[in-house]
Amino acid sequence: MDDTAQKNLFVEVWTSFRNIPLWVQLWMVFWLVPINAASLLFWQEENGLWVALLANIAMLLNLPVMAYERRISRTMALPHLPFWTPLVVLILWMTPDLSTTYGVYLWVLAATNSLSLAFDYADAVRWFNGDRD
Results as ranks from 00 to 15, higher is better:
Met1Thr: 04
Asp3Tyr: 03
Asp3Thr: 14
Thr4Met: 11
Thr4Leu: 14
Gln6Arg: 14
Val11Ile: 11
Glu12Met: 10
Glu12Trp: 04
Trp14Cys: 05
Thr15Asp: 13
Thr15Met: 03
Pro21Gln: 00
Pro21Glu: 00
Trp23Ala: 11
Val24Gly: 05
Gln25Trp: 08
Gln25Glu: 07
Leu26Gln: 12
Met28Ser: 15
Val29Leu: 15
Phe30Tyr: 13
Phe30Ser: 10
Val33Met: 07
Pro34Ser: 06
Asn36Pro: 02
Asn36Gln: 02
Leu40Ala: 12
Leu41Ile: 10
Trp43Ser: 10
Glu46Ile: 08
Asn47Ile: 03
Leu49Glu: 09
Trp50Asn: 15
Trp50Met: 14
Ala52Arg: 12
Ala52Ile: 10
Ala52Asn: 11
Leu54Asn: 01
Ile57Ala: 06
Leu60Glu: 04
Asn62Ala: 09
Asn62Gln: 14
Leu63Ile: 15
Met66Trp: 06
Tyr68Ala: 01
Ile72Ser: 13
Ser73Lys: 06
Ser73Ala: 11
Arg74Val: 08
Arg74Glu: 11
Thr75Leu: 15
Ala77Leu: 03
Pro79Leu: 00
His80Ile: 01
His80Asp: 07
Leu81Trp: 07
Pro82Asp: 04
Phe83Cys: 07
Pro86Gln: 08
Leu87Pro: 02
Leu87Asp: 02
Val88Asp: 12
Leu90Tyr: 10
Leu92Lys: 03
Leu98Lys: 06
Thr100Gln: 12
Tyr102Ala: 08
Gly103His: 11
Gly103Met: 08
Val104Pro: 02
Tyr105Gly: 09
Leu106Ala: 05
Leu106Glu: 04
Trp107Ser: 03
Ala110Glu: 00
Ala110Lys: 01
Ala111Cys: 13
Leu115Tyr: 09
Leu117Thr: 13
Asp120His: 14
Ala122Tyr: 15
Ala122Thr: 13
Asp123Ala: 14
Arg126Glu: 12
Phe128Asn: 03
Phe128Cys: 05
Arg132Asn: 10
